[in-house]
Write a protein that binds this DNA or RNA. Sequence first.
DNA 1: GCCGTATGTTCGTATATATGAATACGATGA
DNA 2: TCATCGTATTCATATATACGAACATACGGC
Lengths: 248, 248
Amino acid sequence: MPTSGDGAAKEHRTVSRVTTILELAAAGPGGVRLSELAEQLGAPRSSIHGLVKGLVATGYLREEDGAYTIGPAVGTLLAAATPSIEQAARPVMRRLGERFGETVMLAEPVGDSVVYTETVESTQMIRYSAPLRTRRPLYPTSSGKCVLAFARKRFRDNYLSAHVPDGEQRNRVEQELTEIAETGIAVNRGETMPDVYGIGVPVLVGERVLAVLATAGPSHRMAGRVDEIAAAARLAAREVSELITRRG
Amino acid sequence: MPTSGDGAAKEHRTVSRVTTILELAAAGPGGVRLSELAEQLGAPRSSIHGLVKGLVATGYLREEDGAYTIGPAVGTLLAAATPSIEQAARPVMRRLGERFGETVMLAEPVGDSVVYTETVESTQMIRYSAPLRTRRPLYPTSSGKCVLAFARKRFRDNYLSAHVPDGEQRNRVEQELTEIAETGIAVNRGETMPDVYGIGVPVLVGERVLAVLATAGPSHRMAGRVDEIAAAARLAAREVSELITRRG
DNA sequence: GCCGTATGTTCGTATATATGAATACGATGA
DNA sequence: TCATCGTATTCATATATACGAACATACGGC
């Protein structure tokens, strides 16, 4: 998998013609006629004829009285454009937050960190207030644990060897991550800040963790219902995943 | 020019592939890889490779880390979609109406009539109140005169022979229409309703009259400034024409 | 009504492009 | 570090498609 940036985006005559046809159809008031398309493209009518008919068949062009205009399919391209994960997650997060009265965050992995890109804060007096758009470590945050647990072996090993002392502790952490990978639930029991619990569940698309849905709050409210919250969060994460994978 | 409705919109393999690629790129969250495109299309990677590169070159696809997403050019298709003539005309009409304190209408030719599709009414006590969306004759309305003056010879002759008595009167009308074609200004001096003046100027796109911008009001306010209003209206009509022809 | 012109459509051939094998490259796991 | 895998890319050849001419059809002016 070459991380190739572009690779000399070569031109392709037919493709260029197709796109130009669409552009001309979009620009021309009341549509464009076949002859005009041919003229603008510097190609014979008969050549454009086939392309245009093909575009009509696929709904990208509409034929109206011999004039061609942009068809309905073009709009669906943008409409079907996958909503950003933040957009998709927001309503789901809100429901989750209201149900348990705790703060819910969406964390996305970036490099050797996670970043909270969206939060729905609890309305309780005592609550976890999330630092939006700042980097947090991959351990021992609940979000980070999720990322590590589902990350590639090499990446995980690299990170752990740099951030967790070798020996007994390392083994415990690796054991924990293995369990997280199995259960799909990561918990931070006051490891970052005493008295703050976090529960992270991955938003999975295929094998990849696109983001983590994390619920956080004071231990006295969280400790007794970790399983309950985790179960609900897993359903919520699954819903987000479906929202961003289903095609429009 | 066959008025053909469609003509058996045949499919075109390459075109279908291009459109499907766009759809897949729009649907897939975070983009689609070349291999997946090839698989979904049931075609070899190498075949899709060329198409994809072509789409990247034209801006319809964006390559990001080996994954393809919808490119910026797609949005411009819809953005560049020509605004309806009503939309384009509305602000121009408003300015014109305010400047002279008279009612301004946009008339579009339909069959043997014109229809007012948009109006900006004067705020004066005495004003011309326009009948929106009803058919008006092509003569002697100022809008209709404009349409006739720029219409094809055959169409014009047909209409006149059906609506204007042969002989002296017919000659005068034809003379009037010729002048209108030269000046680009049609005036209705109380010919439809006594005391109501109308000034029509064509919104031309190429040779065609897409619509007519008509300013109407009571003769005592209009008669003395026909030329002034007509000059301003011509500029306004030209502006509308440019708005709907310029490509985005 | 007739003819001249412009447009869309069809058809057999030339050619650009799709194909599939082979190559190059990066990532992954031991 | 090495071998393995999957992916993107290149290249010579087969083929779908673009070409240009001829045909059909509608429209314009006389």
